[in-house]
Amino acid sequence: MPGANRYRSHNLVLLSFFSLTCLFQTSCGDTGEQRTSFKMAVSAPDDMGTDFENDLGWKVVLDSASVVIGPIYFFSGEPLFSMSRLLDWLDPIPTAFAHPGHYVAGEALGQVLDQARIDLLSEMPQVLGTATGVTGLYNSARVYLKPAGDDTYSVLVTGTATKDQDHVSFKGELDVEIKLEGLPCGIHVEPGKAGGMVMFVDPRIWLKRVDFSTLAGPDQDGYMFFEKGTSNHSAFSRGVDNAGAFSFSWK
C-alpha cells in the first residue's frame, strides 16, 4: 500500500509503480478510515464518593444516582469548550473559526444506539452497549438522557443533604428528554485498539448549585423534591445539562 501522506502530480513514476504493483493484488490501498466497533461503558468518575459538598455548602450523601442514557453519537466537530480551546486561550495566536461560538457537529463517526439505565454508584463501569462507527478522532459527542421502557425518568438521584442543623432527604428526578450537544470527547479511535470507551458521568455536578432548604415536599415516600418551575428545579436541570458532568476516556 502506498503510504504517501502527501501526493503530488510529479510522482508519476511512483504512482505508476504502485498501480502496476496493485494490478496483481486483489486489494491495494484504502479509502481512509475503517469501520470499527467497541464496547461503550458508563461510570461515575474514579474519585466519586457517596458524599461531597456542593457550592452552597450542603454536604450531600447520595443513596442512589441513576441515569437513562442513549443513544450516544460521536462527531468530528470540535466541541465548544474543550482542552484545545483552553490551550488556544493560553497560547493566544489567533485561530480562525468561521462562526466562533457555534458548535458544528460535523460528520458522525460513531454511535451507540442502545439505551440503558445506569447506576452511577456502582463500583464497576456498566456496559451501555456496542458502539459502531468508523475510526478517527471523536472530537465531540451528543448524548441523550431520556426515559425508556419502564424507566419513567431520565435522571434520578436520591440522598441526604446536610447543612448546619438542616437534614434534607431529597429526590431529584427529571422525566424529560435531555439532549447534550457538543460534549468534549477527544478520543482517537484506531483500528484494532484494545479496550473500550468509558463515559464518566458526575452526579455531583447535577447538585452543585442546589439549595436544599427550599425543596418542596415531602412526597409519599418522604423525599423532598424539586418542584417544576422553582429555582431549585432549574438549578438541578442546569446541573444535569452541564457539559462538565460528562467526560470520556479509553480504557
Binding site: 501522506n5 501526493y7 504502485f18
Partner: peptide, 12 residues
C-alpha cells in the same frame, strides 16, 4: 485497471 488516489492523503 485504474488506481485512483486523492493527492492530499494518498488514499484511494
Amino acid at each position: 485497471y485504474a488506481y485512483s488516489v486523492l493527492d492530499e492523503t494518498g488514499k484511494l
